[in-house]
Amino acid sequence: MEIKIDDLSGNEVAVLISEHLQGMTEHSPPESIHALDLSQLKKPDITFWSAWEGNDLLGCGALKELDPQHAEIKSMRTSSAHLRKGVAKRLLQHMVDIAKERGYKRLSLETGSMDAFEPAKRLYESFGFQYCKPFSDYVEDPNSVFMKKEL
């Protein structure tokens, strides 16, 4: 698996982000969807990675810098054809490693509270993320859970 910084210009990535946004729409009410679209993911405070095996897109993930010591995990998604193969685990480890290299002291994330998000929550828990109060501009929401990891 090759994980690389991606400029979000490829069709495969656009399709995966569209799939991600559609999945959020299926499982969360509109006011509780915090997923970013392609244009938002291209902002300078965000680094976006894609994971590939040859020409096959396996998944993606991003880090959004909130301040010089704190970043947020965004847009974690595994292609539906590659679920349960360790793609998300490898991407998450890559982003944790990069966050440490950059000198961040904390990683945070928001994900859904519904059953569809249980695999994601288990993954984050396995990496030592703990549940916390909303961070940054988030507010309490019964459809969201917030997690953090001190680095």
Results as ranks from 00 to 15, higher is better:
Met1Trp: 05
Glu2Thr: 13
Ile3Met: 04
Lys4Glu: 07
Ile5Leu: 14
Ile5Asp: 14
Asp7Cys: 05
Leu8Asp: 09
Gly10Ala: 10
Glu12Ala: 14
Glu12Met: 10
Val13Tyr: 02
Ala14Asn: 02
Ala14Asp: 04
Val15Lys: 04
Leu16Val: 11
Ile17Phe: 06
Ser18Gln: 09
Gly23Arg: 04
Gly23Lys: 04
Glu26Thr: 12
His27Trp: 08
His27Lys: 10
Ser28Pro: 02
Ser28Phe: 07
Ser28Tyr: 09
Pro29Tyr: 04
Pro29Phe: 04
Glu31Trp: 03
Glu31Met: 05
Glu31Leu: 07
Ser32Val: 07
Ile33Asn: 10
Ile33His: 03
His34Tyr: 15
His34Thr: 15
Ala35Gln: 04
Ala35Glu: 01
Ala35Val: 05
Leu36Thr: 06
Leu38Ala: 01
Leu38His: 03
Leu38Ile: 12
Leu38Lys: 09
Gln40Met: 06
Lys42Leu: 12
Pro44Val: 14
Pro44Ala: 13
Ile46Thr: 07
Thr47Asp: 15
Thr47Gly: 02
Trp49His: 09
Ser50His: 04
Ser50Asn: 02
Trp52Thr: 06
Gly54Met: 15
Gly54Thr: 11
Asn55Gln: 11
Asp56Gln: 13
Asp56Met: 05
Leu57Phe: 12
Leu58Lys: 15
Gly59Phe: 09
Gly59Arg: 11
Leu63Pro: 07
Lys64His: 10
Glu65Ala: 06
Leu66Ser: 09
Leu66Ala: 08
Asp67Trp: 01
Asp67Thr: 00
Asp67His: 07
Pro68Ile: 05
Pro68Lys: 06
His70Leu: 12
Ala71Glu: 07
Ala71Met: 01
Glu72Ile: 00
Glu72Tyr: 03
Lys74Ser: 06
Ser75Thr: 12
Met76Lys: 03
Arg77Asn: 05
Arg77Glu: 04
Thr78Val: 15
Thr78Ile: 05
Thr78Met: 07
Thr78Glu: 10
Ser79Ile: 01
Ser80Leu: 10
Arg84Cys: 05
Ala88Ser: 08
Lys89Asn: 09
Arg90Leu: 03
Arg90Ile: 00
Arg90His: 02
Leu91Ala: 07
Leu91Ser: 07
Ala99Glu: 04
Lys100Ser: 14
Arg102Ser: 14
Arg102Trp: 14
Tyr104His: 13
Lys105Ala: 12
Lys105Leu: 10
Lys105Gly: 11
Lys105Cys: 11
Leu107Phe: 02
Ser108Lys: 01
Leu109Phe: 08
Glu110Lys: 15
Thr111Glu: 02
Gly112Asn: 08
Ser113Met: 06
Met114Asp: 07
Glu118Tyr: 08
Lys121Pro: 00
Glu125Asn: 03
Glu125Tyr: 06
Ser126Pro: 09
Phe127Ala: 02
Gly128Arg: 06
Phe129Cys: 09
Gln130Asp: 11
Tyr131Gln: 15
Tyr131Asn: 13
Pro134Ala: 12
Asp137Arg: 09
Asp137Pro: 00
Asp141Leu: 07
Ser144Cys: 11
Phe146Arg: 00
Met147Thr: 01
Lys148Phe: 13
Lys149Arg: 13
Glu150His: 05
Leu151Ile: 13
